[in-house]
Amino acid sequence: PEDEKKAKEALKRANGDEDKAKEILRKLGVDPDRAEELLRRLR
């Protein structure tokens, strides 16, 4: 869904750096736990 698209985009923008991607997602208003879960799934 929408969050998943955001997560993929964030990872791309962060050049695969998960911590940076998490930060980006947090700024986009995605719940930190949700962000973590999404990134884990994309790994």
Score class of each variant (00 low, 15 high):
Gly16Lys: 03
Asp3His: 05
Leu38Met: 10
Pro32Thr: 09
Ala35His: 03
Arg40Ser: 08
Gly16His: 04
Ala10Trp: 02
Leu42Glu: 03
Leu28Lys: 04
Lys8Thr: 08
Lys27Pro: 01
Leu38Glu: 01
Lys12Tyr: 13
Glu36Asp: 12
Arg26Asn: 08
Glu18Gln: 09
Leu39Lys: 00
Lys5Tyr: 12
Ala10His: 01
Lys27Arg: 13
Ile24Ala: 05
Glu2Trp: 12
Arg40His: 09
Lys6Cys: 09
Asp19Thr: 14
Ile24Arg: 03
Lys22Val: 08
Pro32Leu: 11
Lys27Thr: 13
Glu18Phe: 15
Gly16Ile: 01
Ala35Ile: 15
Lys5Pro: 05
Ala7Arg: 01
Arg34Thr: 13
Leu42Lys: 02
Lys8Cys: 10
Lys8Ile: 15
Arg43Met: 12
Arg43Gln: 08
Arg40Gln: 09
Glu37Ser: 06
Glu4Asn: 07
Glu2His: 09
Lys27Phe: 10
Ala14His: 03
Gly16Glu: 03
Lys8Trp: 15
Ala35Glu: 01
Asp31Thr: 11
Asp17Ile: 04
Gly29Trp: 00
Leu25Phe: 02
Lys8Tyr: 13
Pro32Phe: 07
Lys6Pro: 03
Lys20Asp: 06
Lys27Tyr: 08
Asp3Val: 07
Lys12Asn: 09
Glu9Met: 11
Ala7Ile: 08
Glu9Gln: 11
Pro1Met: 14
Glu36Thr: 08
Asp33Phe: 13
Lys6Trp: 15
Ala7Met: 05
Gly16Met: 05
Asp17Met: 04
Asp3Arg: 03
Glu37Asn: 06
Asp31Asn: 10
Leu28Ile: 06
Ile24Asp: 04
Ala35Val: 12
Lys6Asn: 10
Ala21Arg: 01
Glu2Val: 09
Pro1Ala: 14
Glu2Arg: 07
Glu18Ala: 11
Asp19Tyr: 12
Val30Trp: 14
Leu11Asp: 01
Leu42Tyr: 06
Lys22Ile: 12
Lys5Asn: 11
Arg34Phe: 10
Gly29Ile: 03
Asp3Ala: 07
Pro32Trp: 09
Ala7Tyr: 04
Arg26Asp: 05
Leu28Asp: 07
Ala35Lys: 00
Ala21Glu: 01
Glu37Asp: 08
Glu4Leu: 15
Leu42Ser: 03
Ala35Arg: 02
Asp3Gly: 06
Arg41Lys: 13
Leu25Val: 01
Asp33Gln: 13
Arg13Trp: 14
Glu23Tyr: 05
Val30Ser: 01
Arg43Asp: 04
Arg13Tyr: 12
Val30Gln: 02
Leu39Phe: 07
Gly29Leu: 04
Arg41Ala: 11
Ala10Lys: 01
Leu42Val: 07
Lys20Val: 14
Val30Phe: 15
Asp33Arg: 13
Glu37Val: 08
Arg43Gly: 06
Lys22Arg: 14
Ile24His: 04
Arg41Ser: 08
Asp31Leu: 10
Glu4Gln: 09
Asn15Pro: 02
Glu36Lys: 07
Lys22Gly: 04
Pro32Asn: 11
Ala35Gln: 02
Arg13Pro: 01
Arg43Ser: 07
Gly29Pro: 00
Leu42Cys: 04
Arg13Gln: 15
Ala14Thr: 07
Ala14Met: 04
Ala35Ser: 05
Lys5Ser: 10
Asp3Thr: 05
Asp3Glu: 13
Ala21Thr: 03
Gly16Tyr: 11
Lys12Val: 10
Ala10Leu: 03
Asn15Arg: 13
Arg40Gly: 06
Asp19His: 12
Leu28Pro: 00
Glu9Trp: 15
Asp17Ala: 04
Ala10Val: 04
Lys12Met: 13
Lys20Ile: 14
Arg13Ile: 14
Glu18Ile: 15
Asp31Pro: 15
Glu37Met: 08
Leu25Glu: 00
Arg34Ser: 08
Pro1Asn: 14
Val30Lys: 01
Glu36Arg: 07
Lys6Tyr: 13
Asp17Leu: 04
Leu28Gly: 05
Ala10Thr: 02
Lys5Arg: 14
Asp17Asn: 12
Lys20Gly: 06
Ala35Thr: 04
Ala35Asn: 01
Lys8Leu: 14
Arg40Lys: 11
Leu42Asp: 01
Ala7Leu: 07
Lys8Gln: 11
Pro32Ile: 10
Leu42Met: 07
Asn15Ser: 07
Lys8Glu: 08
Asp31Arg: 08
Lys22Asp: 02
Val30Asp: 00
Arg40Trp: 05
Glu36Leu: 08
Pro32Gln: 09
Leu25Ile: 02
Leu11His: 03
Arg34Tyr: 14
Glu36Met: 08
Glu36Gly: 06
Pro1Gly: 14
Glu36Ser: 08
Gly29Lys: 03
Arg41Asn: 10
